[in-house]
Protein backbone atom coordinates (compact mmCIF):
# COMPACT_ATOMS: atom_id res chain seq x y z
CA UNK A 1 0.00 0.00 0.00
CA UNK A 2 1.45 3.33 -1.06
CA UNK A 3 0.26 5.38 1.88
CA UNK A 4 1.41 8.75 0.60
CA UNK A 5 -0.23 8.21 -2.80
CA UNK A 6 -3.49 7.28 -1.11
CA UNK A 7 -3.31 10.38 1.07
CA UNK A 8 -2.68 12.54 -1.99
CA UNK A 9 -5.61 10.98 -3.83
CA UNK A 10 -7.83 11.44 -0.79
CA UNK A 11 -6.79 15.07 -0.60
CA UNK A 12 -8.06 15.51 -4.12
CA UNK A 13 -11.45 14.17 -3.17
CA UNK A 14 -10.98 10.46 -3.84
CA UNK A 15 -13.04 8.86 -1.10
CA UNK A 16 -12.10 5.34 -2.18
CA UNK A 17 -8.47 6.16 -1.59
CA UNK A 18 -9.25 7.35 1.91
CA UNK A 19 -11.34 4.24 2.55
CA UNK A 20 -8.31 2.14 1.67
CA UNK A 21 -6.52 3.89 4.52
CA UNK A 22 -9.52 3.29 6.76
CA UNK A 23 -9.48 -0.43 6.04
CA UNK A 24 -5.78 -0.58 6.76
CA UNK A 25 -5.94 1.21 10.08
CA UNK A 26 -9.40 0.45 11.41
CA UNK A 27 -8.37 -2.51 13.60
CA UNK A 28 -5.60 -0.56 15.27
CA UNK A 29 -7.86 2.45 15.67
CA UNK A 30 -10.71 0.47 17.12
CA UNK A 31 -8.41 -1.44 19.48
CA UNK A 32 -6.95 1.78 20.89
CA UNK A 33 -10.40 3.33 21.21
CA UNK A 34 -11.72 0.22 22.90
CA UNK A 35 -8.93 0.14 25.46
CA UNK A 36 -9.33 3.83 26.19
CA UNK A 37 -13.13 3.88 26.29
CA UNK A 38 -13.54 0.52 27.95
CA UNK A 39 -16.63 -0.56 26.09
CA UNK A 40 -17.40 -1.50 22.48
CA UNK A 41 -20.22 0.88 21.56
CA UNK A 42 -18.34 3.95 22.69
CA UNK A 43 -15.22 2.66 20.95
CA UNK A 44 -17.16 2.19 17.70
CA UNK A 45 -18.60 5.69 17.90
CA UNK A 46 -15.21 7.21 18.65
CA UNK A 47 -13.58 5.28 15.80
CA UNK A 48 -16.18 6.39 13.28
CA UNK A 49 -15.91 9.98 14.44
CA UNK A 50 -12.15 9.77 14.22
CA UNK A 51 -12.18 8.65 10.59
CA UNK A 52 -14.71 11.32 9.60
CA UNK A 53 -12.63 13.92 11.38
CA UNK A 54 -9.44 12.61 9.76
CA UNK A 55 -10.98 12.96 6.31
CA UNK A 56 -12.07 16.51 7.01
CA UNK A 57 -8.70 17.47 8.45
CA UNK A 58 -6.58 15.63 5.94
CA UNK A 59 -5.36 18.90 4.46
CA UNK A 60 -3.78 19.66 7.84
CA UNK A 61 -1.63 16.53 7.71
CA UNK A 62 1.91 17.80 7.25
CA UNK A 63 3.76 14.58 6.59
CA UNK A 64 5.51 12.45 9.18
CA UNK A 65 3.90 9.39 10.68
CA UNK A 66 0.35 9.09 9.40
CA UNK A 67 -0.27 6.45 12.07
CA UNK A 68 0.67 8.86 14.85
CA UNK A 69 -1.42 11.62 13.26
CA UNK A 70 -4.40 9.28 13.04
CA UNK A 71 -3.91 8.07 16.62
CA UNK A 72 -3.92 11.65 17.81
CA UNK A 73 -7.31 12.14 16.18
CA UNK A 74 -8.53 8.90 17.72
CA UNK A 75 -7.46 9.88 21.23
CA UNK A 76 -9.11 13.28 20.79
CA UNK A 77 -12.29 11.60 19.57
CA UNK A 78 -12.21 9.29 22.60
CA UNK A 79 -11.80 12.25 24.90
CA UNK A 80 -14.72 14.07 23.25
CA UNK A 81 -16.86 10.95 23.41
CA UNK A 82 -16.07 10.44 27.10
CA UNK A 83 -16.99 14.03 27.88
CA UNK A 84 -20.18 13.74 25.85
CA UNK A 85 -21.16 10.62 27.75
CA UNK A 86 -20.42 12.28 31.06
CA UNK A 87 -22.69 15.18 30.14
CA UNK A 88 -25.42 12.87 28.89
CA UNK A 89 -25.37 9.78 31.07
CA UNK A 90 -27.06 6.79 29.53
CA UNK A 91 -29.83 5.33 31.80
CA UNK A 92 -32.52 7.91 31.41
CA UNK A 93 -35.36 5.43 31.89
CA UNK A 94 -37.32 5.63 35.15
CA UNK A 95 -39.44 2.49 35.15
CA UNK A 96 -42.05 2.13 37.82
CA UNK A 97 -43.35 -0.95 39.62
CA UNK A 98 -47.03 -1.51 40.19
CA UNK A 99 -46.93 0.39 43.45
CA UNK A 100 -45.39 3.42 41.76
CA UNK A 101 -41.91 2.87 43.11
CA UNK A 102 -39.28 4.02 40.67
CA UNK A 103 -36.66 1.47 39.76
CA UNK A 104 -33.19 2.95 39.56
CA UNK A 105 -31.74 0.00 37.66
CA UNK A 106 -33.84 -1.21 34.75
CA UNK A 107 -32.55 -4.75 34.98
CA UNK A 108 -34.71 -6.09 32.15
CA UNK A 109 -32.94 -3.82 29.69
CA UNK A 110 -29.51 -5.16 30.51
CA UNK A 111 -28.27 -8.05 28.47
CA UNK A 112 -26.42 -10.41 30.73
CA UNK A 113 -24.96 -12.31 27.83
CA UNK A 114 -21.31 -11.47 27.30
CA UNK A 115 -20.49 -9.34 24.32
CA UNK A 116 -18.07 -10.71 21.75
CA UNK A 117 -15.35 -8.62 23.35
CA UNK A 118 -16.16 -9.95 26.78
CA UNK A 119 -16.18 -13.48 25.43
CA UNK A 120 -12.69 -12.99 24.17
CA UNK A 121 -11.70 -11.74 27.58
CA UNK A 122 -13.40 -14.40 29.57
CA UNK A 123 -10.49 -14.85 31.79
CA UNK A 124 -10.84 -13.09 35.09
CA UNK A 125 -7.30 -11.90 34.93
CA UNK A 126 -7.92 -10.00 31.73
CA UNK A 127 -11.05 -8.53 33.24
CA UNK A 128 -9.00 -7.39 36.20
CA UNK A 129 -6.41 -5.78 33.96
CA UNK A 130 -9.15 -4.05 32.00
CA UNK A 131 -10.64 -2.82 35.24
CA UNK A 132 -7.31 -1.43 36.36
CA UNK A 133 -6.81 0.39 33.05
CA UNK A 134 -10.24 1.97 33.31
CA UNK A 135 -9.39 3.20 36.79
CA UNK A 136 -6.66 5.43 35.38
CA UNK A 137 -7.14 9.06 34.48
CA UNK A 138 -7.61 9.68 30.78
CA UNK A 139 -4.14 11.10 30.15
CA UNK A 140 -2.39 8.19 31.92
CA UNK A 141 -4.66 5.63 30.32
CA UNK A 142 -4.00 6.97 26.82
CA UNK A 143 -0.23 6.76 27.12
CA UNK A 144 -0.40 3.32 28.72
CA UNK A 145 -2.64 1.99 25.96
CA UNK A 146 -0.48 3.43 23.21
CA UNK A 147 2.81 2.09 24.58
CA UNK A 148 1.97 -1.08 26.48
CA UNK A 149 -1.11 -2.28 24.61
CA UNK A 150 -0.52 -0.95 21.11
CA UNK A 151 3.27 -1.26 21.35
CA UNK A 152 4.23 2.20 20.12
CA UNK A 153 7.65 3.63 20.90
CA UNK A 154 7.92 6.70 23.10
CA UNK A 155 8.44 9.09 20.21
CA UNK A 156 5.38 7.99 18.26
CA UNK A 157 3.31 7.99 21.43
CA UNK A 158 4.44 11.52 22.20
CA UNK A 159 3.45 12.56 18.70
CA UNK A 160 0.11 10.82 19.06
CA UNK A 161 -0.83 12.54 22.30
CA UNK A 162 0.82 15.83 21.42
CA UNK A 163 3.06 16.08 24.47
CA UNK A 164 6.83 16.17 24.98
CA UNK A 165 8.76 12.95 25.28
CA UNK A 166 9.51 13.55 28.97
CA UNK A 167 5.82 13.88 29.73
CA UNK A 168 5.14 10.57 28.04
CA UNK A 169 7.87 8.88 30.09
CA UNK A 170 6.51 10.33 33.28
CA UNK A 171 2.89 9.48 32.55
CA UNK A 172 3.77 5.98 31.46
CA UNK A 173 5.79 5.30 34.60
CA UNK A 174 3.03 6.51 36.86
CA UNK A 175 0.36 4.67 34.90
CA UNK A 176 2.30 1.42 35.19
CA UNK A 177 2.72 1.96 38.88
CA UNK A 178 -1.00 2.59 39.33
CA UNK A 179 -1.90 -0.52 37.34
CA UNK A 180 0.57 -2.56 39.31
CA UNK A 181 -0.88 -1.22 42.53
CA UNK A 182 -4.42 -1.92 41.34
CA UNK A 183 -3.50 -5.49 40.39
CA UNK A 184 -2.44 -6.09 43.99
CA UNK A 185 -6.13 -6.53 44.68
CA UNK A 186 -6.26 -9.43 42.22
CA UNK A 187 -3.21 -11.32 43.41
CA UNK A 188 -5.07 -14.60 43.54
CA UNK A 189 -5.79 -14.27 39.83
CA UNK A 190 -2.21 -13.83 38.82
CA UNK A 191 -0.20 -16.82 37.70
CA UNK A 192 2.69 -17.70 40.00
CA UNK A 193 5.07 -16.36 37.44
CA UNK A 194 3.42 -12.95 37.59
CA UNK A 195 2.83 -12.66 41.31
CA UNK A 196 3.52 -9.10 42.26
CA UNK A 197 5.67 -8.31 45.20
CA UNK A 198 3.27 -6.01 46.99
CA UNK A 199 5.13 -5.76 50.25
CA UNK A 200 8.35 -4.52 48.75
CA UNK A 201 6.78 -2.20 46.25
CA UNK A 202 4.63 -0.29 48.72
Amino acid sequence: MDEQALIQDALEGNLDAFNSLVLHYQDMTYNVAYRIMGEPDAAGDATQEAFISAYKKLAQYRGGSFKAWLLRIVTNACYDELRRRQRQPVTPLKPELDDGEILENPFWIEDDAPTPEEQSEDSELLTAIKHCINELDFKFRTVLVLVDVEGLDYETAAEAVGTPLGTVKSRLARAREKVQSCLQGFRELLPDLFRLNGEESA
Binding site: N19, I133, V179
Partner: peptide
Protein backbone atom coordinates in the same frame (compact mmCIF):
# COMPACT_ATOMS: atom_id res chain seq x y z
CA UNK B 1 6.66 -5.42 39.53
CA UNK B 2 6.72 -2.87 36.75
CA UNK B 3 7.93 -5.54 34.37
CA UNK B 4 5.09 -7.83 35.43
CA UNK B 5 2.52 -5.10 34.89
CA UNK B 6 3.98 -4.37 31.47
CA UNK B 7 3.90 -8.04 30.47
CA UNK B 8 0.32 -8.45 31.68
CA UNK B 9 -0.80 -5.38 29.76
CA UNK B 10 0.82 -6.65 26.60
CA UNK B 11 -1.15 -9.88 26.96
CA UNK B 12 -4.44 -8.12 26.42
CA UNK B 13 -5.91 -9.48 23.21
CA UNK B 14 -6.15 -7.16 20.25
CA UNK B 15 -9.67 -6.25 19.36
CA UNK B 16 -10.79 -6.56 15.77
CA UNK B 17 -13.01 -3.86 14.39
CA UNK B 18 -16.59 -5.20 14.69
CA UNK B 19 -17.50 -3.62 11.36
CA UNK B 20 -16.04 -1.56 8.57
CA UNK B 21 -15.63 2.12 9.33
CA UNK B 22 -15.29 3.16 5.71
CA UNK B 23 -16.87 6.48 4.83
CA UNK B 24 -19.74 7.05 2.46
CA UNK B 25 -20.41 10.26 0.49
CA UNK B 26 -23.32 11.16 2.76
CA UNK B 27 -20.97 11.12 5.77
CA UNK B 28 -18.59 13.63 4.25
CA UNK B 29 -19.20 16.05 1.42
CA UNK B 30 -16.83 15.19 -1.39
Amino acid sequence: NLHTAKVLLSRLPRQQAPRNFTLTPDMVPV
